[in-house]
């Protein structure tokens, strides 16, 4: 890992911890923006230039604007200081521990067998410029690309349908906590 990769990794992990452990959701969102930008830097360290730009535009731009918009629309306060249930903490620790301890040894063990020479031979072909990635997407992956436009259309229709106010499929609860017009 290069020096730049190391710095960006440290920033990404620190920002990820900030997302999880900040009480205020707004600070979590800003930490997530830092995390996503650091990931964009890591993509460009790994020669995926097109994905780095897409990451900044789509994730750090569009999706985070949407998240911040919803946060400010809902006007949330910081999470109350109720202490964590021991059960939840236990489940979280088990999941995190099992992910790291099961996947990492198998991955590193399998890579021991690959020759460094073959990797260096392959390295230049994975330069993810706009031209190279575009040729892949519009060539071999054209059907999947067309289907992804359908997915986005379904996403738009679903979002409009869910957040429609009148005649919504999910109406306000009668006599419950709701009643917001």
């Amino acid at each position: 890992m290069t020096f730049m990769g190391f710095v960006l990794s440290a920033v990404a992990v620190a920002a990820a911890l900030g997302v999880v452990f900040n009480r205020n959701p707004l600070y979590s969102a800003f930490c997530l923006i830092v995390n996503l930008l650091a990931m964009a830097g890591l993509y460009s360290v790994l020669n995926a230039h097109f994905l780095a730009v897409t990451q900044v535009v789509v994730y750090a731009g569009a999706i985070m604007v949407l998240v911040l918009f919803v946060l400010m629309l809902l006007n949330l306060k910081a999470e109350s200081g109720r202490k964590l249930g021991i059960f939840r903490t236990l489940i979280a620790a088990i999941i995190a521990g099992s992910v790291v301890t099961t996947v990492y040894p198998s991955v590193s063990a399998n890579f021991e067998q690959l020759s460094i020479h073959a990797l260096q031979e392959n390295a230049w072909r994975s330069e993810g410029t706009v031209k190279a990635v575009g040729e892949e997407i519009y060539g071999r992956y054209i059907r999947q690309f067309e289907l992804s436009s359908l997915v986005l259309l379904i996403g738009i229709v679903g979002a409009v349908m869910l957040s429609k106010r009148k005649h919504s499929t999910i109406g306000p609860r009668e006599g419950g906590l709701g009643g917001m017009k």
Partner: peptide, 8 residues
Amino acid sequence: SKLQGNLD
């Protein structure tokens, strides 16, 4: 992707 040397 970098390891394999292709863009998949």
